[in-house]
Design a protein around this nucleic acid. Structure first.
Length: 358
DNA sequence: TCTGGGGTCCTAGGACCC
DNA sequence: TCTGGGGTCCTAGGACCC
């Protein structure tokens, strides 16, 4: 059933990791700050706004970031601290709002459709989070996740913007199509090949032309986004479909024994994770990235569900041996999927009941 | 000075069954 | 003996997001 009025908010903690670091190292405030690993292949996890002015951005190789901004303070990431800080922020939000979908450590969507005064509630929330944690939230408000997210992302830091679908469609029309969620570098490039650079041009593009280039389904999806049509729901509970562990070696590895040791370690980790969550998987996959960046995946689905690191390792090793990388390996990963359906699993503490169909 | 790690979703093709 | 179409399960690759 269609809902009369949807009010969705997107909340994003500004420069999250950098903010956590600044909170405990206030003397660094105002300086360009980069959070990045120290290895030769490390990338930037986050940069303060001062560092961003030098062109430093997330996912950029750390070495390049240092070159762009030699005076920046570079800190190694402390994920444990970030998880704690994230918990502080989101538990404050959860005190006020029930329908929350987490979107990573520093973002969430809120469904405030049932709230009589959503904007006032969000104002109070932003103030409270800032007062209690020192973190600044950027907030986008709209009739959909797409409008909310695009608004918060484009007006941050310290954004607080509400827009209707029509306003978003008009406001973002001159912006690059890339601002729309779901349009990444590849799709933007393909669109540019059709002469489509902006959201407005995508709105006005011929549906036939788009369908020809992208297929019916994706074409419809692209144009719906350009007009900010989106009825996806805020889903508070999402059940994971896969878990994985991967490692990029500091230098490429040609030695089979080293690869096998890494694989066994990751398999053990995944087994532990599955047992901790009382979940079991049937599909075991490996991912291998060679020194020339070619990336290959191999998967096998086995008869029985497993949560055993040994079983995962045995299958992963077979897959690796069957593939037999012909070049030095840059990255190696293991993934488990096809989880046992939760409804088929015995629930702890509740006796199993036989339910007959009516 | 080359490009992390953890996920999700989509597509396309093949095997197999009815 | 060939022909057909749909559905499900599985694998591999790719795009995207945080």
């Amino acid at each position: 059933m269609a809902q009369a009025r949807r009010v969705i908010a997107h909340l994003d903690i500004d420069a999250f990791y950098a903010s956590v670091e600044l909170r405990r190292r206030p003397e660094l405030r105002g300086l360009p700050l980069i959070v990045a690993g120290s290895g030769p292949r490390a990338v930037v996890t986050t940069a303060s706004y001062e560092a961003r002015r030098f062109g430093v951005n997330s996912a950029m190789p750390a070495a390049r970031a240092r070159a762009l901004c030699p005076d920046a303070v570079v800190l190694a990431p402390d994920f444990e601290a970030y998880r704690r800080a994230s918990g502080e922020v989101w538990s404050l939000v959860r005190e006020q709002v029930q329908l929350i979908q987490s979107a990573g450590i520093d973002e969430a969507y809120l469904d405030l459709s049932e709230e009589p005064f959503p904007v006032a509630l969000l104002r109070r929330l932003v103030a409270r989070v800032h007062e209690r944690t020192g973190m600044t939230l950027s907030v986008g408000i709209g009739p959909s996740r797409l409008v909310a997210k695009t608004a918060s992302a484009s007006f941050k830091p310290a954004a607080f913007v509400a827009m209707s679908r029509e306003q978003a469609a008009a406001h973002f029309a001159p912006h690059a199509a890339r601002v729309l969620q779901g349009i990444g570098p590849k799709t933007a490039e393909r669109l540019a090949g059709l002469g489509i650079q902006t959201v407005g041009q995508l709105q006005a593009a011929s549906a036939e032309l788009l369908a020809q280039r992208f297929g019916e389904r994706m074409a419809c999806e692209l144009q719906a986004r350009a007009h900010f049509h989106d009825d996806s729901l805020v889903e508070p509970v999402r059940i994971a479909k896969s878990r994985s562990s991967e490692v990029t070696f500091p230098t490429d590895v040609a030695d089979a024994a080293t690869l096998e040791r890494a694989l066994i370690g990751m398999a053990a980790e995944l087994g532990e994770g599955l047992r901790a969550r009382t979940r079991r998987a049937r599909t075991i996959a490996i991912k291998v990235r060679l020194d020339d960046w070619t990336t290959v995946t191999r998967a096998r689905t086995i008869e029985c569900f497993t949560d055993s690191g040994e079983t995962i390792a045995a299958v992963a090793l077979e897959l690796l041996q069957a593939y037999g990388p012909a070049r030095p390996v840059r990255l190696l990963g293991v993934r488990v999927a096809s989880f046992e359906d939760e409804s088929d699993m015995p629930t702890r503490g509740t006796p199993v009941q036989l339910v007959l169909p009516l």
